[in-house]
């Protein structure tokens, strides 16, 4: 077999192996987006009803819709508070529990539980914990004379967003922490030993070994975590339904409400497309700015097939 022959066979196999995943993603992501764009140009109000083509009317209406503009702002704050804060907190926790201590294995296994239970369980847990009259958080704070009146964690519009951010972080930080821990464990031990021989301080070790090794993980989680945060729906819907008032109505919540409770599917889908467009721009800028970290595979196997 010639080298050229080997290489093209290798390429073909590689492509064939990843093809099923690509086809599935096209089926459940690309096709619905195309179909969604079509719906957004119509006047359809409920699934299966009569409709006509109305061009960009839904889009124009949305740009003048104060509620929609406000929800974009709330989503922006939500993404900053969740995506950014969670990644940072998870990184710090991972660094904290990466050094050996008694019970480390227990922590590494069980810390992930909040991520592994359905959102419905999370919603029950925290609605009950945050309850004004019998919730543990309020009764404890009252017992310690920290507050006079119960804090309305989910019913006070000034606090509800923070409470939801806390609950959502409680849910996702454990998972991100585990991924950082795995990434920390993959740093070659020799690099630290060499640094210790050279007398490098812990801070210098972090800066020159740990951080560069974590950077690819940090970048991928920065991208994926932001996208995950921006599309969070279930936990908000189950805990506040976007309320009180519109206090926690992010774009996904508003669009879902508009589609299925406001009976305006086409306009809601137009809102979804606008939101998607913003996320795509974000993703492109993010990937371009960090393009070195996104070179997913090393070039070892390029040599192999030459």
């Amino acid at each position: 077999m010639t080298k050229q022959d080997f290489r093209s066979r290798d390429a073909r196999l590689g492509f064939l192996l990843v093809l099923p995943a690509v086809v599935l993603v096209i089926l459940v992501v690309i096709l619905p987006i195309i179909s969604g764009i079509q719906i957004s140009f119509t006047s359809q109000r409920v699934v299966g009803s009569e409709y006509e083509f109305i061009g960009l009317k839904n889009y124009f209406e949305l740009f003048e819709d104060k509620q929609f503009i406000a929800s974009l702002g709330k989503s922006a704050i939500w993404v900053l508070a969740n995506g950014f804060f969670q990644t940072l907190a998870a990184l710090l926790i991972a660094l904290l529990i990466n050094q050996p201590f008694r019970g480390q294995n227990f922590v590494r296994t069980w810390i992930i539980l909040p991520w592994a239970v359905p959102a419905a369980v999370t919603a029950i847990l925290w609605r009950w914990m945050f309850d004004a009259s019998s919730g543990i958080v309020n009764t404890t704070m009252k017992g310690m004379d920290l507050v006079q009146k119960p804090v309305l964690f989910l019913a006070n519009p000034d606090i509800a967003g923070m409470s939801l951010t806390f609950v959502n972080s409680w849910r996702y930080i454990p998972f991100l922490t585990i991924i950082f821990l795995a990434s920390l464990a993959s740093v070659p031990e020799e690099e630290y030993e060499a640094a210790k021989v050279d007398g490098a301080t812990p801070w210098l070790q972090f800066k020159s070994i740990t951080f560069p090794n974590l950077l690819p993980t940090l970048t991928v989680l920065g991208l994926v975590g932001t996208l995950w945060a921006s599309n969070v729906f279930d936990i908000i819907w189950m805990m506040t339904r976007g309320g009180p008032g519109d206090a926690t109505t992010t774009v996904p919540v508003l669009m879902y409400d508009m589609a299925f409770y406001g009976y305006n599917i086409s306009k809601a889908t137009a809102g979804a497309i606008i939101f998607l467009f913003i996320l795509i721009i974000f993703a492109f800028v993010f990937i371009f700015a960090n393009r070195k970290q996104f070179v997913i595979a090393s070039d070892t196997f390029q040599d192999l097939s030459k």
Binding site: V25, I33, L227, N231, T269, L279
Partner: peptide, 13 residues
Amino acid sequence: SVYIFPTALLVVP
């Protein structure tokens, strides 16, 4: 890029 997909919003298509 799957995770760009606004799940709550594209359930209709």
